[in-house]
Amino acid sequence: MTAISNPSAAPVVATRKRPLRPVDVVQRAIGYVLLVLLVLFCLVPFAWVVLSAVDADAGAIVKFPEFSFVNFTRFFSDPGTPLLLVNSLVIAISSTALNLALGIAGGYALSRFAFRGRRFFMFAILLIRVVPAPATIVALYLIMVNLQLANTLHGLILVQAVSGLPVTLWLMKGTVDAVPVELEEAAWTDGSTRLGAIRRIVLPVIGPGLGAAAMLQFMGSWGDFLTPLVLLQNQDLYPLAIGLFRAFTERNIVDWGLLAASGIVYVLPPAILYLFVRKHLLKSSLGGALKG
């Protein structure tokens, strides 16, 4: 380890104008060694998934791959796995859309109107974050059974959209707070209705906040394991999270290559969304600064 990090520390030392005391050099070397060890700890576990996904002869362990994309073509031609991806997409996109629709409306009300119980409501939904999900899942399951929503996709979508709603409401309230109310008032005097003003004045400028809320909600829904595990029994409704779990634990012979490829497919949408939203967020905040 020391051998790896010393060369990277050396140029820094060499380019310094003021000579470093030996004690500083030692401290920096130790610092780089620690950082490299931490990075190895964080990245090495991914080696298996990445290498096995492109290995035609993948096993349970890390080895040099027999490079091919056959696992991915198998993922998309297999009778079961494409449905997992479709279900995951339907669940995550629908729950995000529903969550944002409710969050924008609610956040606007929380920001623009002073009504009795507003502060109480804000703190009550903040307190909800203290409750760990496994502590309410049992009662939630029974309620869903009674509402005939257990074992349905729309039931799961509803639960996930609402579980992220406290955070979205807080985010949207803060975002709308930052939009000057004078802009809206100007639109009203120009003859715009309240809803018209929201659509034309508020919605176009809350993009970054909306993007952040959408990303949090999508990733939460996409990665959720406990709720679909409890609520869904029908195999045709399983999202990727449950499909991967079943493929790993319930088959006698695990198809490692397919499993790794599924893992990669599962990681990609949130990764792409993250990159896209990040770029978009940077651009929009930069644009706002330039115009301002």
């Binding site: 409306a105 609610g106 009300a109 909800i128 009662a139 309620i143 609402v162 309240r194």
Partner: peptide
């Protein structure tokens, strides 16, 4: 009326799917 229209659905859903499970539990 407008607060109820905008915030009402969120409040009802949070009550049914988050608060109710805790109380029912």
């Amino acid at each position: 009326p407008i607060v109820a229209l905008l915030l009402g659905p969120s409040a009802v859903l949070i009550t049914v799917f988050i608060v109710l499970p805790a109380v029912y539990g």
